[in-house]
């Protein structure tokens, strides 16, 4: 079975959980900007959570499958509809062969993940199917998807078949379960909570005022925001004493301060080393949340300890584990 892209969009790529182990050679991890949404979408279709799926940014293309399929959408709500019928987020959805899935404007969030049972079967490059567009690596021909592209879908796993059997029996063409799953809602009160960070490598080199300013001010996401990183606008931050730096490792969520003073937050396709001083390191669950911000949205920051950061990470993983067990239990019990 194939998935056909029927329209053009802003930035639609194939992503999984990333290409780990090659940063020492300058190859970044890439992968989904909001990995929790990708994992949720995959689990809802019976896939392993690392299966390749679509990451659609701000504007999504219409797609159609040339066979019956079970899909799930998680992350930003882009007003999806199948054959004209509105389709809910965060649920397994059965689409009969040839049903056109289309999207409107994003109602909440910025990035929507669409998993299909069986996963997108593009070649694995260095252990991952994720697209690293700047290097034309991985994904579908190493690039953003365009109208006319046709992507192979892998073999449907047992859980996917089970879901298909259950949903096919409903007397509707497009059908979904009466339950949904997710560890957080993409909504204003969630998206605009402070972004928590731990001290960066050069935290103590920043002036007292700058350290306080980062916590007290709102920063706006500028239009220079993509999979590599977000340039922010707001109160300028400076080192106490200017100093020359040797390039150091950079990571997902690093808050760098270049000499002009405006912060840059590094995201999934970040460079592997950077030469700007690093004031902070946004914690992983919050970088996923940052992935749902659009240019113009604001960010505030809150410093936490490494212990707190680890604790939040563990709690989030526990929630993901509980969700996976919950989804599997529903599928086992007949899906309803």
């Amino acid at each position: 079975m194939n998935m056909h892209i029927l329209g053009n969009s802003l930035m639609t790529t194939v992503q999984d959980l990333g290409r780990t182990g090659y940063q020492k050679y300058g190859v970044n991890v890439s992968g989904a900007m909001d990995p929790y949404s990708l994992r949720t979408a995959n689990r809802l279709t019976g896939n392993p959570e690392n299966a390749a799926a679509l990451e659609m940014t701000l504007m999504a293309p219409s797609v159609v499958f040339d066979g019956p399929s079970v899909i799930a959408l998680a992350g930003a709500d882009m007003n999806p509809s199948a054959g004209g019928i509105p389709v809910p987020m965060n649920r397994p959805v059965y689409l009969p062969e040839g049903t056109v899935l289309s999207f409107g404007r994003p109602r909440r969030g910025c990035r929507c993940y669409m998993a299909v049972s069986g996963g997108l079967d593009v070649p694995s490059v260095m252990g991952s199917r994720s697209t690293y567009a700047r290097a034309s690596l991985g994904g579908f021909q190493g690039r953003t998807l365009i109208k006319g592209d046709s992507l192979p879908v892998g073999k449907m796993p047992e859980k996917g078949k089970k879901l298909q059997n259950i949903l096919e029996k409903q007397k509707r063409k497009t059908a979904w379960t009466p339950w949904s799953a997710g560890i957080y809602p993409i909504c204003e009160s969630f998206l605009f909570r402070p972004f928590r960070y731990t001290e960066g490598l050069q935290y103590s080199d920043f002036s007292e005022e700058s350290r306080t300013a980062l916590e007290r001010n709102r920063y706006r996401v500028t239009v220079h925001a993509d999979r590599m990183g977000y340039r922010l606008e707001g109160e300028k931050l400076h080192l106490a004493v200017q100093k020359e730096m040797i390039s150091e490792m950079a990571s997902l969520g690093t808050i760098q301060i270049p000499s002009e003073g405006y912060p840059i937050v590094l995201m999934a396709e970040h460079q592997t080393c950077a030469g700007y001083p690093e004031i902070g390191q946004i914690i992983l669950p919050d970088t996923a949340r940052a992935a749902q911000l659009k240019p113009g949205d604001t960010m505030t920051f809150e410093k936490i300890s490494l212990e707190e950061a680890e604790n939040i990470y563990i709690q989030t993983e526990k929630q993901m584990r509980a969700m996976t067990a919950g989804i599997d239990a529903h599928i086992e019990q007949g899906g309803l």
């Binding site: 949904s180 799953a181 929630q319 993901m320 509980a322 919950g326 529903h330």
Partner: peptide, 10 residues
Amino acid sequence: ESMKVFTEIP
């Protein structure tokens, strides 16, 4: 909600 699965109540 139980186990992060949200069941609708009709």
